[in-house]
Design a protein around this nucleic acid. Structure first.
Lengths: 125, 125
DNA sequence: TGTACAATTCACATATTCATATTATGTATT
DNA sequence: AATACATAATATGAATATGTGAATTGTACA
């Protein structure tokens, strides 16, 4: 696969991914690099044991920070910082209810990745 | 979603992901944490602009280190190190042919993730 | 208003990641 | 064997990420 969204790329091969050889123009390379940067930022955001477990728990419904704190056996400040990162990345949404703040999954991006991750790392054996 | 592979988890909800509430036993939590660690290591490996672009280029066929060096406009040592990381993670395989070493994608894991990443970051707009 | 609780933010120490330079290894060629 | 080339491995410092404790903000309630 490659990371341009240029409609002029070659026809698809075995999978749903576009294919290209060595005939990319500089513009394509730039777009590819830009996309790669966005994508790697996203992957870094979810590439953390604690944050991954948070997303995982949120998939079954919204949770307060203290609930997550218990579920992860982690300190409040740490959980809060991890949530902060996920918030910045637009992956979760906070909702205040009284003293507690409940977090939920924000969009489908995390869900889509998590589904693949689940298949790869939690279903096999 | 959650990261256990316990068959006793609740029925699936909207997506293909299992759901659970607060009734996980310690054993489940351990398995989940172990899976989360494996998964986050994997995500860290591909969550790097250079490595992502390498995987991306390899998706269209095996490439030598010098070819990748040119494609990424990166130094030899850097590319080699990134390949080394991908090798350790089992994502790519080297094949020696004379002086050159050709790398190719090792398994489907990378491809599966990359396909989703491509949809999320290279198709939209 | 004062107190308790939930969550965030800050400042710091530590750990990890990364890029670069340098050195080493393996292969072909002479 | 000697040399050149392609790649790998190692070492070092800079940058980044992470966890911890203390201080801070926001909310509810007496």
């Amino acid at each position: 696969m490659e990371l341009t969204s240029n409609p002029a790329v070659k026809a698809e091969k075995t999978m749903g991914l576009p294919v290209f050889d060595t005939d990319m123009c500089a513009e394509d390379m730039d777009r590819m690099a830009a996309n790669a940067m966005k994508a790697s930022n996203f992957l870094k955001a979810i590439g953390h044991e604690g944050r991954l477990m948070i997303l995982c728990h949120l998939a079954s419904g919204e949770k307060s920070v203290t609930e997550l704190e218990d579920l992860l056996s982690a300190r409040q400040a740490a959980v809060s910082q991890q949530l902060s990162r996920l918030r910045l990345e637009g992956l979760v949404n906070p909702r205040r209810d009284g003293k507690a703040i409940y977090y939920s999954l924000a969009d489908d991006r995390a869900k889509q990745i998590m589904e693949v991750v689940y298949d790869l790392f939690c279903r096999e054996e």
